[in-house]
Nucleic acid binder design. Structure first.
Lengths: 192, 192
DNA sequence: GTCTATATTAAGATAGAC
DNA sequence: GTCTATCTTAATATAGAC
């Protein structure tokens, strides 16, 4: 272990800070200089860890956030708790992730062109997994497969859209209301 | 009139092409070289018309699209047609503007940081005008002021969010379904 | 009013010392 | 593994001819 040089920032700290930049400024809006400033590592050191540069860093950061969603949202919605209980837990996780509407959605901001094919493919997969996950919960709550899919699309759209409204206007009310309704919206009939 | 030099591209053509770049690639994703290629004007000529450079061009392009929304959406929703008829017209205008879900929303893409204060302020005003406009229509259809405001927020969020889903996944079904439901959604009770 | 040519700055990226 | 220093390219922006 004596050869193990102490890293100035851990891998997870580095990716957390990179993700925060990418989700707020977009792929094109983040430069290696800003990444260097945010992580405390010089550009050359970032290239040492991520030879593919900004694109590889963004892919790694997005990979981490997808893992987080897998554990805290997708898998959580498949536990054996009652459906409504599962959603209540997920709502709190989402509230935390989006900081009550103050932070943008990674899918939204990073799905603009510029991030490369791998990034686009990851976000596409993650979005579809999110829809499938919400739909699965709705089916567990008793909705038909068709109803569940539509409900899932509406729920994800309401979250994404209310975050857009929050970024454009500074008002997070719509987002917070969307989260508050999410349990009923995904589990009860006659919603939309 | 003999001194009036024929412009290679008209002002409106130029701004239309600029807007198409900005809404698809974001402010940071559009360079003057791309604007030059898309408009057929050299960079120096773009600076002649817009001394403020990319930022002034984006502001002008967004100003035009806001005028379009004012005429085709906000004002249209205040005509003396029956409320449902008004929405049907607006739905077709929105379908056209978003090319059936294939083109992103200007508010979404250009509200990322980088576009400057004036752009951010324009988008904020436009978003609030959109919400007020939808809410006014819902009130004309008989909903209470409070109900109408919530319905408007949900409608705009569903549009924005379904466009995000479309960009991330390539599937425009959610967006087209949102437009299809919009008349009932804005005018009838018991929707959400 | 548009062009060519160029200045200036910042970006992405690498070499090599420690 | 991180640094300083540097390369290369592309971006914003301007000068001056036509």
């Amino acid at each position: 272990m004596s050869e193990m040089a102490r890293q100035t920032v851990t891998e997870s700290e580095l990716l957390d800070r990179a993700l925060d930049l990418f989700r707020c400024y977009g792929f094109e809006g983040v430069s290696l200089s800003r990444l260097s400033a945010a992580t405390g590592l010089e550009k050359a050191s970032l290239y040492y860890r991520y030879p593919g540069g900004k694109e590889e860093l963004a892919n790694a950061a997005v990979g981490r956030v997808i893992e987080w969603f897998q554990a805290n949202v997708f898998d959580m919605l498949k536990t054996d708790l009652p459906p409504r209980e599962r959603v209540l837990v997920v709502v709190e996780k989402l509230r935390e992730f989006y900081v009550d509407g103050a932070k943008p959605c990674v899918i939204d901001v990073l799905s603009l062109p510029g991030g490369g094919n791998e990034l686009a493919a990851s976000l596409k997969l993650a979005t579809e997994a999110w829809l499938v996950s919400f739909a699965g919960l709705s089916m567990a709550a008793g909705l038909s497969e068709e109803e569940a899919r539509l409900r899932a699309e509406d729920a994800v759209a309401l979250i994404e859209g209310s975050l857009v409204i929050a970024r454009a206007t500074g008002e997070t009310g719509a987002f917070r209301r969307t989260l508050h309704r999410l349990p009923a919206f995904l589990t009860e009939r006659d919603q939309l």
